[in-house]
Amino acid sequence: MNKKFSISEGAISSHKCCLCGHLLSVAPIMSAGLENELYKCGRCNKVKCQTYTRTRLFEDVAQHLSFPCSYTPCDKKVAWGSVEKHERDCPYRTMKCPIYYHNCSDVVRVENLLEHFKDRHSKNIRPIDSIWELNIQFDYVFLTQIDNNYFLVYIMHLEEIFSISVLATGRSKYSNFSVKLLPSTDDKFAVYFDDLPVVRYDERSHCYMCIRKKCNEPHHPFAKRNSSGEIDLSAFASKLKKELIDSVKAPDGNLRYRITLKANETSSEHHGQPTEEEEEKEECEEEELCANISNIPADVNGEVLRRVLSCPYCMTYMAAPIFTCTIGHTICNVCRPRLEKCPSCAEPLGRSRNYALEEITKDARVPCQYDSKGCTFAGSTTKMYIHEQECSFSNLLRE
Results as ranks from 00 to 15, higher is better:
Thr72Trp: 02
Leu57Ile: 11
Ser14Ile: 07
Ser14Arg: 15
Ser13Leu: 14
His64Trp: 04
Arg43Leu: 11
Ser31Ala: 12
Asn36Tyr: 04
Met95Thr: 15
Gly21Ile: 09
His86Thr: 01
Pro68Thr: 12
Cys17Asp: 09
Met95Ile: 15
Ile12Ala: 08
Asn36Glu: 13
Cys18Val: 10
Lys16Gln: 14
Trp80Val: 01
Pro68Leu: 03
Ser31Glu: 03
Ile29Thr: 11
Glu84Ile: 03
Glu87Asn: 13
Val83Pro: 00
Phe67Ser: 02
Pro98Leu: 01
Gln63Leu: 04
Thr55Met: 03
Cys17His: 07
Ser31Asn: 13
Asn36Ser: 15
Tyr39Val: 07
Asn45Phe: 12
His64Gln: 09
Leu38Thr: 10
Val26Phe: 06
Ser66Lys: 01
Ala32His: 12
Ser82Gly: 04
Lys76Gly: 00
Cys74Asp: 06
Asp75Phe: 02
Glu35Asp: 10
Ser70Asn: 14
Gln63Arg: 15
Ile29Glu: 05
Arg56Lys: 13
Met95Val: 15
Cys44Ser: 11
Gly42Phe: 07
Met30His: 04
Glu59Phe: 05
Cys44His: 09
Lys85Trp: 09
Val47Glu: 07
Val78Tyr: 00
Cys69Thr: 06
Thr94Gln: 15
Ser13Asp: 03
Val61Leu: 08
Leu65Cys: 12
Gly33Cys: 02
Phe67Cys: 03
Cys97Ser: 08
Phe58Gly: 02
Glu59Lys: 09
Lys76Glu: 14
Ala62Gln: 05
Gly42Glu: 12
Phe67Arg: 01
Tyr52Ile: 01
Tyr52Ser: 09
Thr94Ala: 12
Leu65Val: 06
Pro73Leu: 03
Met30Thr: 10
Val47Trp: 06
Pro28Lys: 10
Leu57Gly: 00
Lys40Pro: 01
Leu38Phe: 04
Arg88Ser: 13
Arg56Ile: 07
Asp75Lys: 15
Asp75Thr: 14
Gly81Phe: 03
Ala27Phe: 09
Pro98Val: 02
Phe58Tyr: 15
Lys40Tyr: 05
Asp75Cys: 12
Ile29Met: 07
Pro91Arg: 11
Lys46Gln: 11
